[in-house]
Design a protein around this nucleic acid. Structure first.
Length: 355
DNA sequence: CATCCGTGGGG
DNA sequence: TCCCCAAGGAT
């Protein structure tokens, strides 16, 4: 069959041709012409929220190996899921992941809904993820608008308004592009294009299948889009982390179910979202002990603040009075505790082996 | 609706 | 060093 020249066809068609030639091979992505497992699509989409492909790959493989089905994941203790998620960040995603698995397994008979609106009712599934699952797993014509697609769309139409306000317009523009068939491929093509060609800094417009219709490119100003709002400056905060050892054991706590590191295993610490002056640090120690501060604090940058945490270490022989959410972790199991990256940094600074 | 919520890599 | 950001969602 002879295809008409790309210029005479819908832009979505040129994009699909490009996708057939340049699509990325990713662990959660089905082979060309095959449909992906909805469970794998959902799992990958949750992990990929605000997280790079390179970082997600390993986590995705480990999750899928350990919990091959949504029923298996639903049957797992939340603590196991959180431990497996440790290091990925945004831990509410892991809590919602588990809650969503339970909901799908119990209320939906183990099958993910195909409809965008029904998907959005699931924990951790918002407008983008619902559209992505519906399109990729079920080939429904939904506009999955993520950061990549926002960038592509704002360039195509030279949208000057800050993306924050332009979201409805962007979605409308993407919906206009939706093809009659291959909705899943189209959604992934738009994201691949944004990730590999229509990149934030130096887009490769010469390789772009949509360049001929791109207003920003014709103006020689692709890099100017999307227009961004000013970012608030990151406040600096101080705090302390307490590592108490009893023989080969190390004291860990369970963080409260919400907030920073919600539900995660961690070392006792000052309230990390507050700036706590050095004079007050020892008030937050889990017990009385000969606390010794490491000479170099641990620096850790969160989305909305930068933390400098002094690490205190102490040994104890007796069994001190401890808060009820504390427990002793075997030294050789500390690596399996599933500690957030900050806590792992602290452990390494203290010379603990994390294997 | 602005804020909260992690982390690691690249320019 | 610093800043940006990467397949956002919940509240």
């Amino acid at each position: 069959m002879i295809k008409p020249p790309a210029s005479a066809r819908k832009p979505g068609s040129a994009l699909l041709d490009w996708y057939d030639a340049h699509r990325r091979v990713l662990p959660w992505r089905a082979a060309a012409g095959e449909r992906a497992d909805p469970y794998a699509v959902w799992l990958s989409e949750i992990m990929l929220q605000q997280t790079t492909v390179a970082t997600v790959k390993g986590y995705f493989e480990r999750f899928l190996t350990r919990w091959p089905t949504v029923e298996a994941l639903a049957a797992a203790p939340l603590e196991d899921v959180l431990a497996q998620w440790a290091g990925l960040g945004y831990y509410a995603r892991a809590r919602n992941l588990h809650a969503c698995a339970v909901m799908v397994a119990r209320a939906h008979g183990g099958r993910f809904p195909q409809d965008e609106t029904e998907l959005m009712a699931l924990p951790g599934v918002g407008p983008y993820t619902a559209a992505a699952i519906s399109a990729i797993a079920f080939d429904r014509p939904c506009a999955a608008v993520d950061g990549n697609v926002e960038r592509v769309a704002t360039r195509l139409h030279a949208i000057e308004a800050p993306v924050r306000q332009a979201k409805p317009l962007i979605r409308a523009k993407v919906e206009e592009m939706l093809p009659d068939a291959r909705a899943g491929d189209f959604a992934q093509a738009l994201m691949d294009l944004g990730a590999t060609v229509c990149t934030p800094r130096t887009p490769d417009c010469g390789a772009c299948p949509l360049a001929s219709g791109c207003v920003a490119f014709r103006a020689g100003a692709a890099e100017r889009f999307p227009v961004k709002e000013k970012k608030a400056d990151r406040p600096k905060r101080r705090g302390a982390i307490f590592i108490l050892q009893r023989g080969a054991q190390t004291l860990v706590t369970r963080r409260p179910p919400k907030g920073l590191f919600g539900g995660m295993s961690a070392f006792p610490a000052t309230p990390l979202t507050r700036d706590v002056a050095p004079e007050e640090w020892l008030r937050f120690a889990p017990c009385e002990a000969q606390w010794r501060a490491l000479p170099e604090p641990v620096a850790h940058v969160f989305t909305h603040f930068a933390l400098t945490a002094t690490v205190f270490i102490a040994q104890t022989k007796a069994s001190p009075q401890l808060a009820p959410d504390c427990r002793w972790a075997a030294g050789r199991d500390l690596g399996k505790e599933g500690l957030p990256a900050l806590m792992r940094k602290a452990a390494l600074a203290a010379g603990l082996s994390m294997d």
